[in-house]
Design a protein around this nucleic acid. Structure first.
Lengths: 342, 342
DNA sequence: ATGAAAGCGCTAACAA
DNA sequence: TTGTTAGCGCTTTCAT
C-alpha cells in the first residue's frame, strides 16, 4: 500500500495556512509575511513536498515540453542532432522528450497521438515516409508548432531544417568522376524518402555534366541500415556488369554494410574499389577515420530546428521557414583512381 | 491567437449529451445506446477531439510513463539498452521517456526532479557518480519504483541490473596473460564509478593469479570517452617505462581513443601492441570487427531492467533484486604475443 | 497579508 | 441508458 504523496493542501494544513499561501511561497508571487513563509518552508521540507506539474500544466495549458522524434536512435547522426536540440531547448527552459521510430510509420503515429494527448508544446519530427504527411497534418490541425527535420514532405507548408542533399551528392560524385570513375553505383535509402531522391538527383546531375550515361542498374534502394548496405553491395557486385569501380553510400550505416560486404568479397578499399558516403561516422575503431564523406553538421541541424520551433512557440514568428544547411566534402582515404586506369 | 483545443464538454455540447457520456463512449465503459454513441462519435470526428491525458493522469494518479536515464546517448551501448527497455515497456503499455545526463550529476538531478514532478511511474537510472545516491534516495523516499542500471551504489537497498564487470575484466586480462603479456595497462573510466573499480578488480585478480606484480603506474583514469582514451594512451606510452605491451580499455569509447593515439604514435595493432576493450562497438567502418572485447549484452540488460521495474510498478514484487548478467569474451584480431617474445 | 471560491479536463460514484 | 456531483492538485480572481 503506497503512501500518497503530499499535496499542497497537506503542506497548508501542517503550516496552518491556506493552500494558496503555500502556492505563493513556492512561486514567490504575491505577498507573504516572513513568518508565514518560514512556517510554510519548514512544512515543505518536513513533508518532502514537490509540486505536481500535471496540475500546473492543466492550469497553465502548457507543459514546457517539446518532442523530438527521430528515425534511428542508434545512429550517431541522430544522437548528435539530439544534443543540439537539447542544448538550445534547455536554454529556454523547455524539456525535450526523445522518441525513436525505427523508421516505422506505425511507431510515429503512436508517438504523435500520445504526445498530442499529453499537450506537448511543440514537435521536431523526422518523417519516416511519404505517409508521414498524415501525422504532420494531424499536428498542424491542432495548431501545435512543428518543425520537420532532414526530410522534405511534398505539399505541406511547414518549417523544415535539412542538409543540402542534392549539392552534397553532386560534389561527392564529381570528386569520384575527377578521380576517373565512370561506373559509380548509388546505394540509396528508401525510395520514398526525400533525402534518397535528392541524393540521387545530385548524383545524376554530376554524371550528366560529365557526359556519363546514367545506368539505372547502378542505383539500388534499401533501408538506411548496415544490413541494407551489405545486401545491396553483395547484389550489385555479384550481378551487375560491368562492375562499378566506385560505390556511393547514401548514409553512414549503408557505408558500414558495404565495407563489410567488400571484405567478404575480398575487395580492398581503395585499391580494388572506391567508397564514399553521406554523413560521417564518428565512432570507429579504425586508427583514423578513412572514409571519404560529405558531412552534414548534425549538431547545427538540431540547434537550428530547436530555434525555429522556439520561434513558433513564442509566437515571434508566423511565416514558414525552410532552412538548408551547407554540407562539406571531407576527403580521406577510401578512394583511388579506378583500377583499369592505374 | 491560438484556438483552444476542444474539450470533452465541447464534444458533449455538440452531441447534445453530458460530458460523462462522451467519456463512456471513448473508453467503452458503461452503457451507451448505439444512437448516442453514433452522435458522440460524429461530434468527436467533427471537432478532431482527442482526450487530454494530463487530466486523465491527474484523475488516475498514474501516467503510464517510466523514465530511462542514461549517461551517454551517443554510445551504442546505451542506445541498445534503450531498445531493450522500450520493447518490454511498450508491451506493457508503458511509455518511455529517454534522458541523457552526459555523465553530469547536475543534469541527473534536474531530470529526476522534473520527472518526479510529472508523476513518472518509475525510473531506470544509470548513476553518474557516487553522488547520485542523493537522487536515488530522493526517488526512493517518494516510494517511486526504481531500478539502477549498470553501476552499483554502495549502501542503498535497491534493484540493480548490471553486467559482470569483475569477471569480464578478469577473463580478458587472463587472455592477455596467456598470450604472454606481463605489462598490461588498464585505461579505466572515472575512479568513482563502480564499473571502473570492478574492472580494475578483475584485472588485478588475473595478474595476481599469474604472479605478476601490480604496477599502479599502469592504471590510469579518465572519462568513458574517446578523448579520455586518447589522452591516457598518449601519456602512458610517452611516460611510463617499461612500455606496456598490451592495453585494456575499460569501455568502447576509450578503446577508440586509444586506437587513434596509437596511430598517431605509429604503433600498429596487434603487431606492435595489443588492445582489448570492455563493451563491443557495433558500428565501425572497418571491414570486419577486429577489436577483441568482452561484450555485455546491452539489449538484455535493458530488457531485464524493464522487467524488474514493471514487477515493482505492478506491485508483484517487493523484495530487492540484484541481477548480474554474464559477459562474453570475443576474441578477434587486436591481440598478439608481446613483441619481445616473437 | 491571507483566504474562499472557481475552474483547468477528466471520470468514479451515485442518482434518476 | 443517461446525467449530476464531486474531486484529482494547482492557481487566478476577488474578497477580507
Amino acid at each position: 500500500m503506497k503512501k500518497k504523496r503530499p499535496t499542497i493542501r497537506d503542506v497548508a494544513k501542517l503550516a496552518g495556512v491556506a493552500a494558496i499561501t503555500v502556492s505563493r511561497v513556492i512561486n514567490n508571487s504575491g505577498y507573504t509575511s516572513d513568518e508565514t513563509r518560514d512556517r510554510v518552508e519548514r512544512a515543505i521540507a518536513e513533508l518532502n513536498y514537490i509540486p505536481n506539474s500535471l496540475s500546473q500544466s492543466l492550469r497553465f495549458q502548457t507543459t514546457n515540453t517539446v518532442a523530438l522524434i527521430v528515425s534511428d536512435i542508434t545512429n550517431p547522426f541522430w544522437t548528435t542532432i539530439t544534443r543540439g536540440v537539447e542544448d538550445v531547448c534547455n536554454d529556454h527552459d523547455l524539456h525535450v522528450i526523445l522518441c525513436n521510430t525505427d523508421e516505422k510509420e506505425a511507431k510515429l503515429s503512436k508517438y504523435v497521438n500520445m504526445l498530442l494527448q499529453r499537450q506537448t508544446d511543440g514537435f521536431i519530427l523526422v518523417p519516416t515516409s511519404a505517409a508521414s504527411i498524415n501525422n504532420v497534418t494531424t499536428i498542424l490541425q491542432k495548431h501545435v508548432p512543428l518543425v520537420i527535420l532532414d526530410r522534405q514532405l511534398p505539399q505541406v507548408d511547414v518549417d523544415i531544417v535539412r542538409g543540402d542533399s542534392v549539392e552534397g551528392a553532386y560534389q561527392l560524385t564529381r570528386y569520384l568522376i575527377e578521380l576517373g570513375h565512370q561506373r559509380i553505383a548509388m546505394f540509396s535509402g528508401p525510395i520514398e524518402i526525400s533525402t534518397s531522391e535528392q541524393r540521387i538527383e545530385g548524383y545524376k546531375r554530376a554524371l550528366q555534366e560529365a557526359d556519363i550515361a546514367i545506368d539505372d542498374e547502378l542505383i539500388t534502394f534499401s533501408g538506411y541500415t548496415e544490413a541494407g548496405g551489405r545486401k545491396m553491395a553483395l547484389h550489385m557486385l555479384g550481378n551487375v556488369q560491368p562492375t562499378p569501380t566506385a560505390l556511393f553510400a547514401a548514409n553512414n550505416f549503408i557505408a558500414v554494410g558495404i565495407l563489410r560486404a567488400l571484405y567478404q568479397l575480398e575487395l580492398r578499399v581503395p585499391q580494388d574499389i572506391s567508397v564514399v558516403s553521406f554523413d560521417d561516422l564518428p565512432f570507429d575503431t579504425l586508427p583514423e577515420p578513412f572514409l571519404t564523406v560529405v558531412a552534414q553538421a548534425p549538431y547545427e541541424l538540431g540547434m537550428k530546428a530547436a530555434e525555429l520551433l522556439i520561434g513558433r512557440i513564442s509566437g515571434e514568428r508566423t511565416h514558414t521557414e525552410e532552412i538548408t544547411l551547407p554540407v562539406e566534402v571531407i576527403v580521406r582515404k577510401s578512394c583511388a583512381p579506378p583500377k583499369s586506369q592505374i
